[in-house]
Amino acid sequence: MSVQVKDLKVYYRTLRGDVRALDGASFTIADGEIMGLAGESGCGKSTLGRSLIAIDGRMRYVGGSVSLDGAALPLDDQAAMARHRFTAVSLVPQYAMSAMNPTRKIGKLVTDLLRSRGIAPDTVLGEFRRRLELVGLSTDVLARYPIELSGGMKQRVVMVISTLLDPSLLVADEITSALDVSTQKAVAEAVVEFRDRGFVASTIVITHDLSILVQMADSIMIMYAGKPVERASTDAVVSSSRHPYTRLLLSSLPEVGVRYEEHRLSGIAGRPPSLLNPPPGCRFRDRCPLAFAKCAEEPPFVEVAPGHSAACWKA
């Protein structure tokens, strides 16, 4: 087991109290596994991704542990954590379009970054060039400024930079949300290719777009209101999901061949609860069509079938 997360809790500090954006997440990701992390806005998926990289001043590490290849990550010590970033855990950010310093040539930027981490640039720049070619970019981009590249090119350059040191865990946060559909596919394929070539061991792909996950992820974890609600292989999630939220989420996706003029696409009525002071019990209770008296008690996140976990009394 390569990545092991146990009961991770990270809250946001606000003037009105803690917002429990990530309120206990436990899961494991195997070596070479691409795990999709999905859910609607505010479900805690980005918070989870961010916590694995850097917990900033607005966030508060409350509890839980993350271990990478058996060694614990010092989540609450940012200075110690900095040594693991880039080499062991790395990030492809949501903002890849603006992730590179606009006034520095890309080659210079990477050299600066490597030097600042105490890595001799010559030892990896050859590999960097090879990988740029692998994702279909010419090595000329090293002498270019970020503004001289298109959005898709920037996205790929950032992916190559982030995975340059072969991290054990890569967090890809909404990497396809700002791209057009054909570029989305290319990026999704690149993630899979990087895994296949062993550039990254485990990958977490955070997105609200389930259809892209079906194309690239080995397994999917669905989150709701700061907690994971279902985790299974991609096929199992698509074909035999157990949690009502997952089912509703899937049913709100459009299907090929169905004409939605005649057939209204259904969403999920209601909104997620406030995480400032979340209600006890199952957090999906108020919107759940299957809710019953027992849902006032919090359902545990347990295995309901081999390799398939869900947090629902009716699962």
């Binding site: 970033r85 600042s116 981490r117």
Partner: peptide, 9 residues
């Protein structure tokens, strides 16, 4: 933020 995420000092 990206540089921070990559552990740059």
């Amino acid at each position: 933020h990206y540089l921070t995420a990559l552990g740059a000092p």
